[in-house]
Amino acid sequence: MKTIEETYRERLLMLSKQYGGQTGLSKRIDKSPAQISQWVNGSADSKTGKARSMKSDTAREIEGALGLPRGWFDQPVKTADTTPQEGFIQFTLLDVKAAAGNGFDNSDFPESVQLVEVSEKWARNNIGNNLKSISIITASGDSMHPTFHNGDWLFVDQTINFYEGDGIYVFASAIGLKVKRLQRALNGDLWVVSDNKAYTIDVIPKSELDTIKICGKVVATLRLERI
């Protein structure tokens, strides 16, 4: 049985598609695209660490603004495209490309493109049990070969919005969104490393670490190969 938080997210996805995305919906309900994105993606609250979810009072407010019946948000969505098959789990594919090369310019508040189903067994074996914090983005470029390739799906844990040790992170900088391996030097500088050895290592000095924003950590990849 779905929780009320899951039902709210599914209903928000429906409205987002109906009104031309989260930006279009935000104008109709007087909520920011950032707020809608946090509700849809279940982004972790920076203070509590719990997934953000819409309150019932807010649901009633949106129903009124859009002329929907009271309680519309509380009714579970039973359509096939929002209910995973038995043994499968759904992730949100975001309208984002992270450059494995030069930065890729994206909207500050990416919209959900679709729900993607994968085997729950595969997800738990390759990602772990903290699956609600995971979203999918698309890699762009070749600088992270052979770890992943252009067009691969990257499973990103958005609750890891800080450097927690060597790993592959999605981060925003002045030239756009990147996905690179980050390593801390002994002097506190941050090395931006490409797994493709044809690329050089960039260095972000310790004094300039506030010029980037870590958006998440890549915990798994998925490749669809033509045969």
Rank of each mutant, 00 (worst) to 15 (best):
I134L: 03
P33T: 11
A80F: 10
N126D: 01
Q75V: 13
K121W: 11
R70F: 08
G103Q: 02
I137P: 02
G67M: 05
G49D: 09
I127A: 11
K55L: 10
A98D: 04
P76H: 12
S135C: 13
F91C: 08
V116K: 13
G64D: 03
L131A: 06
K47T: 11
S135W: 00
A100N: 09
A99T: 01
L94Y: 01
F91H: 09
D108W: 01
D74T: 10
I62Y: 02
E86H: 09
N102L: 07
S107G: 08
L93H: 08
N106D: 02
I134F: 03
D95P: 00
G128E: 11
D142I: 02
I127N: 05
V40S: 06
W39G: 00
D95M: 05
Q114M: 12
L68K: 02
N106A: 06
G42M: 07
K78H: 14
R52F: 10
A59D: 01
A51W: 00
K31E: 10
R28S: 06
D142E: 14
W39C: 04
I136A: 07
A80L: 12
N106I: 00
D105M: 09
Q90W: 02
G87I: 11
T92S: 14
A123M: 00
G64L: 09
W72D: 02
H145D: 08
L93Q: 10
W72V: 04
Q35Y: 12
F88R: 12
S43A: 13
Q75G: 08
Q75A: 12
G49T: 08
S119C: 10
D105W: 07
S133Y: 06
T82E: 13
V40G: 05
G103S: 10
R60P: 01
Q38H: 14
P76I: 12
V116Q: 10
N102R: 12
K121A: 12
D95E: 10
P33H: 11
G128A: 09
T79G: 11
S135N: 12
N125F: 07
T138D: 05
K121I: 14
K50I: 09
I62T: 05
K121D: 15
R28E: 15
A44H: 06
A65H: 07
G87W: 12
L131Q: 08
S112R: 12
S140P: 00
I89H: 10
T79L: 15
K55N: 07
D81C: 02
N129Q: 13
K50Y: 14
V40M: 15
E111I: 09
G87S: 14
V113K: 03
P69K: 13
T138W: 01
G64C: 00
L93F: 00
F104I: 08
D30V: 04
D108I: 00
M144R: 03
W39V: 04
Q38Y: 12
F91D: 05
S46R: 13
A139N: 01
